[in-house]
């Protein structure tokens, strides 16, 4: 595949990293400010798109579809653990820890569930993006109109 122009490629690399960090940030702050697993998953999807367009390679080194069952597993386990402790399915708990040096820190088990959401959303979107892009390699017959526009 013809690589897009050098400026785009150069700028894309730090932007992809910035998007990854932004996604993580949105995931973490989701409990108390706009954000959360769903949005964070979509941000990762944009990072994957950028990686595809600018550098013609996949975002993740492993098969992204493995994230989907992993995420579902995390979400279901978050639901089952309370059951084992005698609570209803998906019962959540939260509390505050006062750590020396760091200060007060809130923890919530709902974040783990959100992690499951994040994994499923990012896994699904990145998988679809990768599949469409890889398919292009196989079926492309010279004419490459959208790739040019993307670049």
């Amino acid at each position: 595949m013809r690589l897009p122009d050098i400026f785009f490629r150069t700028v894309a690399t730090p932007v992809i990293f910035a998007l990854a960090v932004l996604g993580f940030h949105f995931f973490l702050r989701g409990h108390n400010a706009p954000g959360g697993g769903f949005v964070a998953g979509l941000i990762v999807a944009t990072a994957a798109l950028l990686a595809r367009m600018a550098r013609a390679r996949r975002l993740l080194a492993f098969r992204s579809e493995t994230l989907v069952p992993l995420g579902l597993l995390v979400a279901v386990i978050t639901g089952i653990v309370p059951m084992l402790l005698g609570f209803p399915f998906l019962k959540s708990a939260f509390g505050h820890l006062d750590w020396p040096m760091v200060g007060e820190f809130e923890w919530a088990t709902a974040v783990l569930f959100d992690l499951g959401v994040f994994l499923v959303v990012s896994g699904t979107t990145v998988t679809i993006i990768d599949l469409l892009a890889e398919d292009d390699k196989l079926t492309r017959m010279g004419k490459d109109e959208a790739g040019g526009e993307g670049g």
Binding site: G30, H31, N32, A75, S92, A110
Partner: peptide
């Protein structure tokens, strides 16, 4: 009850966790 200030997120992951699942 949910320990979060972002109501949308608390609904998604806690109050309506079943739906999200």
């Amino acid at each position: 009850l949910g320990g979060g200030k972002n109501v949308v997120n608390v609904i998604l992951v806690d109050f309506r966790g079943y739906d999200t699942l």
